[in-house]
Design a protein around this nucleic acid. Structure first.
Lengths: 226, 226
DNA sequence: CGGCCGGAATGACCCGGATCAAGGATTCAG
DNA sequence: CTGAATCCTTGATCCGGGTCATTCCGGCCG
């Protein structure tokens, strides 16, 4: 993990790519690099929010935590993605926890830089609106799958979405199976059993984190089979 | 339902209240009044989105619709609330259906007016960001309750949220029970049974759409009782 | 080498809440 | 008043998926 130029990096992610150079420079100037190792917590429910984050290297999970300690993975952040910006506009404490799943490098952009940049550059504001809208839509899809789809449908959808429109292929899980299970809102046990059953029904072959899907169409047909 | 002045009306809702007068006037100028009667559909999944909506009078439900026709109420819109603005920034068709639950009056604001107004007035853009963030957070709460809370916890939370911090009070359901049940992600049957059980356990008295809660604290205690 | 530890698979069992099927209760039209 | 929607309740039954417990496997360290 070598040192990077925050400005160079930010320029290449969608949210900031249309940003005016002057604003980008000022944002990058205030950016703070945070190196966190696997398991370390970036913020917790209840923490005050005074900026937003962009993941440079590694992997971060965003998690809902219930009073009884139960956890539910909301999102798995990949390099180039930003997170925690929505709560910035509300002046409320974080409702979720962010924890590094692997050793990671994160850019922290303080609110004191972001908000003025939004005022000054309405292309940035426009991008931010689009970004929030996308996040809203993807949360909506989550709600849809939790409320209208069965566990097997969620698993099948995951593979179909990951594969795109390829007729066959190999899906490599981005994280370990328990984490992904939580993201799909099921227990590791059911996930394991479903993978097994999908092996019988659609020919999936599981090899560690690699899952070979020989026939996407067959998988898609399973979507209606409850 | 008498004729209204769109400009006057828009001025009084949070999203537009900080708007520059000139922009507000232009927005209002392009506004289209849509009168819809109970049951009528404002837009459906797949319809192109070319504007946003503000409810003036009546009540509208936002609904997820599955391939098999199953429905799930996402939100119940009250007068003064806007809806359908997020999808405006994505250039995608609506992912949900909007249907009038009562005879209603809706203002339609075409994208051709809204987008320029956002460009020209960054106070409006700022409000819009805050609005989307709030919607995001409330969807997050929904995900939380669907994935981490039991049916009874969702019902109890509904009453607690509606009552605020009053020690007791009467909650009048805004819509009929099947609709509210769907909003809470349960069947009418379970909702009915839960109301009955909460009557025994916390003294709730159900009288049509009015539910008397004699002891908020007792209700709150039930939150941990699974 | 053996012991340990986190991840994964598998089996036995249970339960929350859905489904299916009948009634009541209201409301409104004629 | 009568019929007919629509809404709500109540009972009987079922099942998807969670829980608990055990075993297995592949590192990895002493």
């Amino acid at each position: 993990m070598s040192t990077i130029s925050p400005e160079q990096f930010l320029r290449h992610i969608p949210l900031f790519s249309a940003c005016e150079p002057a604003q980008l420079a000022r944002l990058a100037e205030g950016a703070v690099e945070r190196r966190v190792e696997r398991g370390q917590i970036l913020f917790q429910p209840g923490d005050a929010c005074d900026g937003m984050h962009v993941l440079v290297v590694g992997r971060v999970k965003i998690v809902l935590v219930a009073r009884n300690g139960q956890e539910k993975v909301l999102e798995i952040i990949n390099p180039g993605q930003s997170f925690g910006e929505a709560i910035l506009f509300l002046g409320e404490p974080y409702p979720v926890m962010a924890q590094a799943v692997e050793d990671s490098l994160v850019l922290f952009l303080p609110a004191s830089r972001v908000l003025p940049a939004l005022e000054a550059d309405n292309r940035l504001a426009r991008r931010m609106l689009a970004g929030l809208s996308m996040r809203l839509r993807s949360l909506l899809r989550d709600v849809e799958s939790y409320t209208l789809h069965s566990a097997r449908q969620r698993v099948v959808s995951y593979f179909l979405n990951t594969l795109g429109d390829a007729p066959s292929g190999v899906v490599t899980l981005p994280v370990n199976k328990q984490l992904l299970a939580s993201r799909l809102n099921l227990t590791p046990e059911t996930f394991s059993r479903l993978l097994q059953k999908l092996g019988e029904e659609a020919g999936l072959v599981v090899d560690g984190r690699d899952i070979r899907v020989p026939d996407t169409a067959a998988l898609r047909r399973l979507l209606d089979t409850l």
